[in-house]
Each structure stands twice: as C-alpha cells, then as structure tokens.
Amino acid sequence: MADFELRRPTSVAEAVEHLAEGGLPYCGGTELIPVMQLGLMAPDILVDLKRIEPLGGIREDAAEIVLGARVTHDETAASPLVRRHARVLAEATSRLGNARVRATGTLAGNICFAEPRSDVLTALLALEARVDLRSATDSRTVDVADFVEGPFATVRQEEELLEAIRIPVRASRSSYIRFQPGEYPTVTVAAVQGDGGCRVVVGAVGEIPGVFTFPSAEDVDAAEIAAQVDVTEDLGGREDYKRHVTEVFVRRAMAQLAEGSAA
C-alpha cells in the first residue's frame, strides 16, 4: 500500500474542507483498504469519517428513513425502522459479505464504491432511495438511480461527501432474494409492490442493476426481465445460464412477495 496522509475531522464542515483538498472519504474501509493493498487505488489523503457524530444513526424524517454515512450493514439490518419500512434493505444488509464486513462496512461506502454486485445497491434502487451529497460550497440530493453511473463509477464529485441515504416510507410489500454459490452473488432480486406499481431490481448479474417497473406484481414478466437484463460472463456462468437463473430468481422473488407480509 502506498503512503497517504490521514485526516480525522470531527465535523462535516471540516470533512468537506479535506475533500476539497483532494481527500478520499472512508469509514469502515472494507472495500477501500483491500483495493489500496492491491495498489489499484493510491489516494494521497484519506479522510476518516468515524469521528463525525452527526453522520451516525438511523432516523425517521418527514416520511423518509435517513441513514447517516457511518451506518453499518449490521446496524441497518437490526434497525426496527428499517425492518418495518424497508425490509428489502434489512434482508440485503443481513446477508451480504460476511459477519465482519457487516459489522464494519457502511452502506454509504458500499454505494460510493459502486461494486456491480452490491446487494445494497439492488435494495436501494428498489426502494427509490436518494442520497445527500455535500461539498464545501454546495449540497444536492440525487436519486440512487442517477447516482450510480456504471461499475465502480458514481456522479459523486471528489469534493462531495455522501452525507446520508434517504428512503421514502411508503406502504408496500416486498421481497429480497439472492443466488450466491460463490463469494459474490450471481444474481440479486429486490421486488417492491407499492401503490404506484411493482418495481423489480435485478443486481449482480451485470455491470449495473436493471430496474423494471410494472403496473402490478401480477404483470411482472420474469422471462422478459431475464431477456433484457445486462449480463456479465464470468466464472459464475455464461450468459445463457445467468439469464436463466435471473428468470428463476425473479419468479421466486415474486412468489415470496405474494406470500409475504407488508413491508
């Protein structure tokens, strides 16, 4: 790992100043440190967010669940608020990676990394979440769908801090399932049925999750989704196999949604 300077701000204002100087924010480091170990990234300045109190915690705010940038997967999975209003996210965060990654890794770090097989991304897209970005001079809120541009790429500017993730609270039924014969999932499916229709997100199978909307759960066409989804071939399978398991897991997700309770 290359040498770097370490900054440890205690306020958001201080943090964004460091980012303006070219700092890279990190918290759990579960994705960043291995990448730096491999020499794939070599930031000059790391900005540790762990000492910024306001970035912690999960709260409800005007029909939204707000998760601070420091919130870990474990905290999310255990949160009564998340379990009640965003079960797909609770499911995703209780299964991804392994117990140590869940204890340390943060949701904000996860989506900023934009790993194509991210469980969190699949869940947040299904929930139509938004993220708050803030720099020393500006702040904006962006839909997660617009936030992630592609594999390992987001619209976050270097000087911007992802402060919080916002999930709208809506009456809905949902399901989240994943097919993971290897270390990473081959396919993840989140389905959410709300008043406005049914939203199905298929992740991990391609470079970026596919979002599909239907008037209702009964209209979901698994075969159509499987035919349309973006597929990356790898050791987990070739294209036809991946399309096939996508169809299987969309069907299973819909079956689960039909059986499941509101969430």
């Binding site: 370490l6 579960t30 762990k50 340390t104």
Partner: peptide, 13 residues
Amino acid sequence: ERPVSSCGVLACD
C-alpha cells in the same frame, strides 16, 4: 467488541 478482519483495517483506526 466488533469482530473485524484485521487484514482489512488500518492500524491507525
């Protein structure tokens, strides 16, 4: 009290 992979955490942390 949280289990972590010490191969993936900076000592400074």
